[in-house]
Design a protein around this nucleic acid. Structure first.
Length: 266
DNA sequence: ATGGTTGCTTTGCAA
């Protein structure tokens, strides 16, 4: 079963790329971030025409996440628990039935946190603490769980082409990296890093200053796997070529292949 | 050297 995550930076601006990518990559489940759309305006009909069930958690103008799945949703949960005052749409969880039992998949868009020194950075750290608590509770289910998305964290220096340029950035602050490591210490593994020690494997290249042409990238998009999901991991790939398409997102899709047996009829 | 680009809520803000 192929599960991909992709920050598309606006579904309205990216719909042609998205439809082309779904046809080419054929993910069973796609986790999208930054749809920048309210639910009513999400182009669900065009996506459903390709055989996907669609669940969104959007808001006006920015943020917003979605799950596209060839399997039926048994359950959908929107929003990250732990703060009823948080109105930002950054988290959606789907539950699916497979021949290997239940599979849980989350599409998350972790706060960017810049500039450090404003209220945005503590919001990021607070969100990461809430994610940690939520993930810890979910581990008790002992189910395959995939936490996929744009984490807005550079875990290690070799996840950036020029780590020295990110020292003052929220994505590379010690507190951000420590919070990410706490998630790993709970037992979640970074799927791509568990199968590759490649030092130039990035998932984001800024639009500015020719970052793509210079391969000045960072790796910030991950599938974090519960132990039960990690045991079924076959492979992981970064679909880098998508960054060279016309009118690209600044992120590219990252995919994993999980052995979940034959999926039940969608 | 503080540049440069993209998408939306658009002439500012977020990334």
């Amino acid at each position: 079963m192929k599960i991909a995550t992709w920050n598309i930076n606006g579904v309205k601006a990216r719909i042609d790329n998205l439809l082309h990518w779904l046809g080419e990559s054929q993910p069973d489940i796609a986790c999208l971030q930054e749809i920048k759309s309210v639910d009513e305006n999400f182009p669900r009909l065009e996506i459903e025409a390709l055989g996907y069930h669609v669940e969104t958690h959007g808001q006006k103008g920015f943020n917003g996440v979605a799950l596209l799945s060839k399997l039926r949703f048994d359950e959908v949960n929107r929003g990250l628990a732990g703060d009823d005052e948080d109105m930002q749409a950054r988290f959606i969880e789907g539950v699916f039935s497979t021949d290997r039992g239940a599979l849980r998949v989350v599409s998350l868009y972790l706060p960017n946190g810049n500039p450090v020194g404003t209220e945005k950075f503590p919001y990021k750290l607070g969100w990461m603490e809430r994610l940690e608590r939520w993930a810890q509770a979910r581990l008790a289910l002992e189910e395959p769980l995939v936490l996929a998305g744009d984490y807005n964290v550079i875990p290690e220096p070799f996840d950036a082409r020029h780590p020295e340029n990110w020292l003052g950035d929220a994505l590379f602050q010690p507190e951000s990296r420590q919070a990410f490591r706490r998630l790993e210490n709970l037992g979640f593994i970074d799927a791509f890093r568990s199968v590759s020690d490649a030092r130039d494997a990035y998932s984001f290249w800024d639009y500015q200053a020719g970052a793509w042409q210079k391969n000045n990238g960072i790796r910030i998009d991950f599938q974090m796997l519960s132990p039960e999901a990690a045991a079924r991991l076959r492979s992981s790939d970064i679909e880098k070529h998508v960054r060279a398409w016309e009118k690209p997102s600044d992120h590219v899709p990252v995919a994993i292949d999980l052995d979940m047996g034959l999926s039940r009829a969608a």
